[in-house]
Design a protein around this nucleic acid. Structure first.
Length: 679
DNA sequence: GTCGATATAAACACTG
DNA sequence: ACAGTGTTTATATCGA
């Protein structure tokens, strides 16, 4: 208990803010419960509840005090202290993420968080150690005190039980209350110690308060809510997202919420209607049984009832049957301050979860951005091993390459937000089929991509000026195959490059020349005359033929294939996973509307298989049926003699509409403009 | 060292 | 004349 107060206050600013919120939501009800500690395991329900109620009360009080003091301190010190006040502000942003986390788990300070704090603060290790020891000592003291207090409570409760049987309830309660007050004072002393400690921590820079955190409405604290307020609150609660029914995950967060899985609407509603909603949480907390209410349409299925226990946050009252549960529910958890506050807390939990989600998203973005920047810098990395399972390998090619690269990174300009429309990961398809990853200068530089990042690969290359680890031929082929008609004009190919790769938004003259060169050089690219001009198609057969040549009997090529496989496997997995498991594919945002996306997973798989087949068999036989892409039967306009064996497809459909809608409106990343900054 | 694949640069031709 | 397109040649790097 009091974890929220102590642990949260011990640490980071965000914890303090959490405390504020926590506090706020407890404020309306001093009696809001706290999660029982293990110590209570054998105690009776009544005992637990009594202690809990008292604990919460104390918690609120002390937390409020602490919060106030901290706030004041922070305000005062903001300007003053040289130790760390300047730093504090700087760190705010960095702590953003943890903040939300902390809000959810106010009472637990993870080692990481602790470490973070330690790292962030300017204090010397010795100072820190001393502080921590102090803190621990205080905690220990408090714990001991509380245990003692609990024992006392136990005894009291036993007496109470006995007397209850004798029908002397009121008296007992008074006694209990008296005792509680006595211990309360003791605990308050502890709290004060804690506060002092906290303040000292804060002074020394261990603690900061988020400036953004409002001073918090303190008035409502310790006050009951007025009926209308309660009504409104209940409405809020009922309308609030009923997040997970799982009691599981956030329990670490707000104590109350642990069990408080959002109660069902019906029960709340009934509660709202409940005429006797007045009980003072404190004293009534431990007295179950009263009359029941009606929300019993669903006999034995109630979100708040399970395994013979009331699942109301912090309750755990044992109810033999559903009826008794209902009674208990209506009596103990009627519309009163406590229940209201508990619901509030749950709402807060939900909100914080959402906040957390939002922040995590932000963090993801930041990570991506960060990686983009970094990725432009050459990084030496070990050669891609045979990691079929490894996640590492997108070799970002040759930053060191004397050729094109020198130009690239010049502009750190972060990812110019590209046209969102991404055909998913080019990479995937292209690499398998083509197999060979662009080797030149490149193998030395890998951009490790964790499986977690993989989903963002597409975006990665779109935004990062990292040279894609694929050959021009691969990319060209990919561009063509991604088009609805499987054919593109040269300009459309250009556009695809620029759209899909930030890298190709520079040095247009260079890479465009390379593209043209490749188109002409490789037999697999077939030029088809069109009314408007000409379009380029891919002769898949021819394309497949290239691979075996490289691969046959060549271990290194096999390695390459495996590398590409390794690179793609996670992509494939991620993609499929997202498509299968999530109704919301990971790529949706980027690939929305891209017709090719739907087939991507299977295409990837097939191509992957194909690639591996090649790898495994030295044969140069390329089974045309392997790749779905081979449906394309391009015309061979080229004069060059073709291998007799390869079956030329029928003339391809050179339709009037030579470009796909996808590319028609392609934003044309101008070659020149981009070139400028780099040179 | 050779060979094949690839990248880059550049010259050249053709076309609208 | 010019830009875009397409072809070809030369050179360099890399890995096998």
């Amino acid at each position: 208990m009091f974890q929220c107060v102590f642990s949260s206050s011990v640490l980071q600013p965000h914890r303090t803010s959490c405390l504020f919120k926590h506090l706020f939501y407890h404020s309306a009800t001093p009696a809001s419960q706290k999660q029982p500690e293990p110590i209570y395991s054998k105690k009776t329900e009544i005992q637990r509840q009594t202690v809990r109620a008292l604990s919460v009360k104390l918690f609120i009080f002390s937390a409020l005090q602490v919060a106030r003091q901290l706030l004041l301190q922070q305000q005062q010190q903001q300007q003053v202290s040289g130790l760390k006040s300047p730093k504090r502000n700087d760190k705010q942003p960095a702590l953003q993420v943890p903040v939300s986390v902390a809000m959810m788990t106010p009472q637990v300070i993870t080692p990481q968080q602790m470490q973070q704090i330690l790292q962030q603060q300017v204090l010397s290790p010795q100072q820190l150690q001393v502080l921590l020891q102090q803190q621990q000592a205080l905690m220990l003291q408090q714990q001991q005190l509380q245990e003692f207090y609990k024992k006392q409570q136990e005894q009291l409760q036993l007496q109470l039980l006995q007397q209850q049987h004798a029908g002397k309830q009121p008296k007992e309660q008074q006694q209990v209350a008296t005792q509680q007050l006595a211990f309360q004072q003791q605990l308050l002393q502890m709290q004060q110690l804690q506060q002092q400690h906290l303040l000292s921590l804060q002074r020394q820079g261990l603690l900061t308060i988020q400036p953004g955190q409002p001073a918090l409405p303190l008035q409502p604290l310790a006050q009951g809510m007025i009926p209308t307020e309660l009504q409104q609150l209940w409405k809020e609660v009922t309308s609030a997202h009923t997040t997970e029914e799982t009691t599981g995950n956030n329990h670490s967060s707000l104590d109350l919420t642990t069990t408080c899985v959002s109660s069902s609407a019906p029960s709340k509603t009934s509660l709202i209607m409940n005429p006797h909603a007045s009980t003072n949480g404190q004293l009534s907390a431990h007295t179950p049984k009263r009359e029941s209410l009606s929300h019993e349409e669903h006999p034995h299925s109630h979100p708040l009832y399970g395994h013979g226990v009331c699942k109301w946050p912090g309750c755990e009252a044992v109810c033999e049957d559903f009826q008794s549960f209902l009674k208990h529910l209506n009596s103990e958890h009627a519309l009163d301050d406590r229940s209201t506050a508990q619901c509030r807390v749950q709402m807060q939990v939900v909100q914080q979860l959402e906040l957390q989600l939002a922040k995590d998203k932000e963090r993801l973005q930041a990570m991506m951005t960060h990686l983009h920047v970094k990725s432009t810098e050459p990084k030496t990395a070990p050669q891609p091993l045979n990691l079929v399972s490894s996640v590492t390998l997108s070799k970002s090619a040759s930053e060191a390459s004397p050729q094109s690269l020198p130009h690239t990174p010049t502009t750190p300009t972060a990812p110019i937000t590209p046209v969102t429309q991404g055909p998913s990961v080019i990479t995937t398809t292209s690499m398998h089929t083509v197999g060979p990853i662009r080797r030149r200068y490149s193998d030395k530089y890998n951009v490790p991509i964790s499986s977690a990042d993989i989903a963002q690969n597409q975006e990665f290359y779109k935004n990062a000026e990292v040279r894609p680890p694929f050959t021009y031929a691969s990319l060209i082929r990919q561009a063509i195959l991604e088009s609805p008609e499987k054919q593109l004009t040269l300009n459309e190919i250009y556009n695809w490059f620029t759209r899909m790769f930030a890298y190709f938004r520079r040095n247009a003259a260079t890479w465009k020349n390379a593209v043209r060169h490749n188109l002409s050089l490789h037999k697999c690219f077939v030029r088809v005359e069109n009314v408007k001009g000409a379009v380029w198609t891919v002769d898949e057969v021819e394309f497949q033929k290239r691979r075996p040549q490289k691969i046959s009997g060549n271990p290194s090529l096999i390695k390459n294939m495996q590398s590409s496989h390794a690179y793609c496997a996670p992509l494939n997995a991620a993609l499929q996973a997202s498509m299968a498991e999530n109704s919301i594919p990971l790529y949706t945002t980027a690939s929305m509307g891209n017709p090719t996306l739907g087939n991507l997973a299977s295409a990837i798989r097939e191509e992957l298989n194909g690639a591996m087949e090649h790898t495994n068999s030295n044969e140069s036989d390329s089974s045309p049926g392997r790749s779905p892409m081979q449906a394309v039967h391009p015309v061979h306009v080229k004069e060059e003699p073709l291998d007799p064996e390869e079956a030329e497809g029928p003339l391809s459909l050179v339709t009037t509409a030579n470009h796909s809608p996808d590319f028609d409106h392609d934003r044309d990343y101008e070659d020149e403009p981009v070139n400028e900054d780099m040179e």
